[in-house]
């Protein structure tokens, strides 16, 4: 099976690692080879969390610059920051609700214009799916399910070798029981959002 390389970037606390785990468990259920790696430079203290997931026949667990087939960004400026992982073949899915880093508040950086972010990504990649995933997560009843909203959008693209129902099953069996309902709703809202 040809390798499929996925990068997920997020801000610490946005649930990137859980999203990766759900995909990993879904791949295990479907008997699809998967390897993942994560870098969380002091994530709990507000840093960036990046996960790489490689599905299919490859041994590597990390993804070089320009080699991601799909990039999922949980925060727009972080999606932009990870553009070096993309090429003209890459599909990008991003949440558009910003979480400006603290450096912006103390005048050590300027938050990029949102329209400029989408224009740049569109120009440099194959396809961009951008929407306010925070709004969908709130509609699902829990802002913490933003990660699952984005998984829904990811599954809609059918780029992963995983069926949406397998991912739903992984959400049902591998996420905290108290959040399963909100997560499944979040997944469906993200799935729909990616269709428009």
């Amino acid at each position: 099976m040809k390798p499929m390389r996925l990068i997920i970037v997020a801000v610490g606390g946005q649930g990137n690692l859980l999203a990766s785990k759900v995909l990993g468990e879904a791949a295990l259920m479907a008997d699809i080879p998967v390897r993942m790696s994560e870098i969380h430079g002091m994530a709990q203290r507000g840093g960036v969390v990046e996960s790489a997931l490689v599905f299919g026949d490859a041994q590597s667990t990390i993804i070089s610059d320009g080699e991601a087939d799909v990039l999922v960004g949980f925060e727009p400026s972080e999606t932009l920051r990870a553009l070096n992982k993309c090429s003209a073949r890459t599909t990008v899915i991003t949440n558009m609700a910003p979480l400006p880093p603290f450096t912006v508040a103390i005048g050590k950086g300027i938050y990029p214009d949102l329209e400029n972010i989408t224009a740049l990504i569109e120009a440099k990649t194959h396809r961009l799916i951008a929407f306010d995933a925070a709004e969908q997560a709130r509609a699902a009843g829990n802002i913490m399910s933003l990660n699952i909203v984005l998984l829904g959008a990811l599954c809609r693209t059918e780029l992963l070798p995983l069926k949406a129902d397998t991912v739903r099953e992984a959400i049902r069996t591998r996420t905290k029981q108290a959040f399963v309902e909100a997560n499944l709703k979040a997944f469906d809202l993200g799935f729909q959002a990616a269709a428009d």
Partner: peptide, 10 residues
């Protein structure tokens, strides 16, 4: 691409 503001751990 404009410089993205850094997000160091704090």
């Amino acid at each position: 691409v404009p410089e993205v503001p850094p997000r160091p751990p704090t």
